[in-house]
Amino acid sequence: MSPTTSPGIARNARPYLYGGEEAALAEALHAGQYNHGELTEEFEQRVAAFLGVPETVAVASGTAAIHVALLAAGVGPGHEVVVPSFTFCATVQAILATGARPRFVEVNPGTGCVESDEVLAALTPQTRAILPVLYGGRPVDLTETRPALDEDGVTIVEDAAHAFGSRQGTRRVGATGVLTCFSFGPVKNLTCGLGGMIVPRTPLEADTCRRLRGLGIVESAAHRAESTTYTVDGFGMRVQMSPLNAAIGLVQLRHLGETKTRRRELWRAYAAALDGIDGLALVDADVERTLPPMFAVRVFDGRRDQVFRTLRQHGIGVGVHYPPNHTQPAFSEWHRPLPVTEHLGQEIMTLPFHQNLTPADATHVACELDRALNGAER
């Protein structure tokens, strides 16, 4: 690592704080409300206003968001959920948590995202939901599948863990009329430390999600405080978002414009610095519409692992997002031949990407990557 390079380049990703998070967290700690509370509800309302939707439902993590959303969509034992194998394992674990089965499908290797023809070809009589993954924050438009899905009673549940702040056409992801799940984990575009959010389609679906996240209890926390009893009318989990996490998220949300500017600037700096380097291709994030949480490339000719090791040895925090799930031991029961995804899984590599880095850092990483690939001095 050169002495002028940010030490943050050794990290593939890291949280970025704007300075007000500690004070907000301390205030929430002193307020003494650590379960679901007023700050959680304020965060829900602020996110809903940002997205342009009537309401949102905050939960403990992005994984919990997918789990709750699938249950709210009626997914359960005996059902199949169409999902790309190319995603973090949490997506698949959420499906299994409902008792349903994953039906793995291919993605476009140039984007990392599933497309309509793959979705339609994968439908079976047992299909209850489609779970597109918005890889790298890129919107996934499955509009042309909607008539067939609606006819069969199949719900689209978006795994938009990467995509908070991205747009699909004139609308933000989360406001396009499908059941959408966000993650606010440590290294996302907006962090709560840990947290997630569901964008329901109807008031009834919102109510269902709230009961599922809160142990199946019908009454609100405020109502229960004034009552001698409460009603449990079905299954539920304890996956509410704490006000402590919401306090961090409220600060982060105020700075999302700056987040967008800086992340797009870094993405474009990488794209410019990598232009013309032989042996790799960029995964297209559609950065004009996307608030990118990562920068992914494909390394060709079976050289990914060698390049990965070389860069790590030189203090460059590259990563692999993600190994295909259909080849994992835990999911072997649902294995299908997916040659495109398998090949992509052998090529994919993510470069250090977070707001502690500068365009100069991107240039440095590009030079090291070029040397690892081609032995060139840039």
Rank of each mutant, 00 (worst) to 15 (best):
S2F: 14
S2P: 06
P7V: 12
I9G: 01
A13M: 10
A13P: 01
R14T: 07
P15C: 09
L25D: 02
L29H: 15
H30R: 15
E41V: 06
E41Q: 09
E42S: 15
E44P: 03
R46F: 07
V47I: 15
F50E: 14
E55V: 14
A60W: 03
G62C: 10
T63Y: 06
V68N: 03
L70N: 01
G76T: 12
H79P: 01
V82I: 14
V83D: 01
V83H: 05
T87G: 12
C89H: 14
T98D: 03
N108F: 02
S116K: 03
L120I: 09
L123N: 04
R128A: 15
A129R: 05
V133E: 02
L142F: 00
E144T: 01
E151Y: 10
I156G: 00
A161L: 07
G169P: 07
R171E: 13
R171A: 15
A175E: 11
T176G: 07
V178M: 07
C181E: 06
S183I: 09
P186M: 11
P186D: 14
N189I: 04
L190E: 02
G195A: 11
I198R: 01
V199M: 09
P200T: 11
P203S: 11
E205V: 08
T208F: 04
R211T: 06
L212T: 05
G214H: 13
G216F: 09
I217Y: 12
V218Q: 11
S220E: 14
E226Q: 14
S227Q: 15
V232D: 06
R238V: 11
S242R: 04
L244I: 10
L244E: 04
I248H: 04
I248Y: 05
G249Q: 01
G249N: 03
L250T: 02
L250P: 00
L274Q: 02
D275S: 13
G276A: 07
G276H: 09
L280E: 02
D286F: 08
R289H: 13
R289G: 01
P293R: 06
M294W: 00
V299W: 00
D301E: 13
G302F: 04
D305A: 15
D305S: 10
T310L: 12
R312T: 11
R312A: 12
Q313N: 15
Q313E: 15
G319M: 09
G319D: 12
G319T: 09
P323M: 06
P329F: 02
E333R: 15
W334G: 02
Q346W: 08
P359K: 08
D370G: 03
D370I: 03
